[in-house]
Simulated scan of single mutants.
Amino acid sequence: MIALSLSDIQLIQKIAQEAGQAIMQVYEQPTANWQLEQKADDSPLTLADQRSNAIICQALACHWPEIPIISEEEQIAPYEERKDYRYCWLIDPLDGTREFVHRNGEFAINIALVERGEVIFGLLYAPLNQDLYWAQKGEGAYLLEEGEYKRIWASSFSFEQQGLRVLGSRSHLRPATTAYIQSLNQPQFMAKGSALKFMALAQGQADIYPRLGPTMEWDTAAPQIILQEAGGQILDWESRKPLRYNKADLHNPHFMAQGKEEQ
């Protein structure tokens, strides 16, 4: 397994922060300047997505030329080629583009390193508040706060308890997810956009995030290792096993993201 050094992690941090500055330069302009488009799947694409993607992909390719990149905004190599990757980067250069368009600030940059289907490093950066989270397998999960790395932890919970703090998507809440939430014991529902939902779990601010709707691997890869190292999990809804990456189909199955479940 590749073990990134602290200097490697700080370099990736700087890459994310530079990409975040590019995103904010677009965010602060009039919407007419965003070059807003609709992709084939009807999701939005802006100049901010494109600029962030260019900064991240060029920097990673420069410093780690041997590691291929899978990004939401890049041409994806066919699985016949990808299946032989030992390592790859999984990138979402602007996670939560709908939230960006709605100007609510709930968007982030996701950068993950995957080894044979398992995430071994993840970094998430929220440009508006400049919050930065990272984790490496076996080394804990951290939030950069006032120049120091502060360890973060998920809360313990039970599915049977009253008042579970349940996260849901601000822009993608589906009827099946709503029905599940309503089956819980007096849940407290909390809406939040992008991968910041997973960071709320990793910091003990919520208990579960059920997702019975479509997501892509770049939406969850970086958050997964951060949440795992904080004591939580992202589990396939059916198998109850951790999500896997660089699959033939880059769509995720339905999943349950959660804090530390009491046994």
Rank of each mutant, 00 (worst) to 15 (best):
G122W: 04
E146W: 10
E145A: 12
K137A: 12
L143C: 07
V114Q: 06
Y142S: 04
Y149R: 13
I120F: 02
I120N: 08
E115V: 04
R151K: 15
E106H: 04
A179I: 11
Q161G: 07
D131I: 10
A176F: 12
W134D: 08
R116T: 11
G168N: 14
E148P: 08
I111V: 04
V119N: 06
E148V: 13
R170C: 10
L143N: 10
L123K: 00
A176I: 14
K150Q: 15
A112E: 05
T178C: 14
I111F: 06
L167M: 05
T178Q: 15
F121W: 01
N129S: 13
I120H: 00
I109N: 03
F100S: 02
R116F: 09
A179V: 12
L123Y: 07
E118C: 10
N129Y: 13
L167G: 07
L132Y: 00
P127S: 01
Q136W: 01
R170D: 10
P127A: 01
V119C: 05
G138V: 11
I120W: 01
L123S: 00
F157E: 01
N129V: 11
Q162G: 03
Q136L: 07
R174V: 14
N110E: 03
N104F: 03
A135F: 00
L128V: 12
I109E: 01
V166H: 06
I109H: 00
E106G: 06
Q161W: 12
G138P: 05
L164V: 03
H172E: 15
V166C: 04
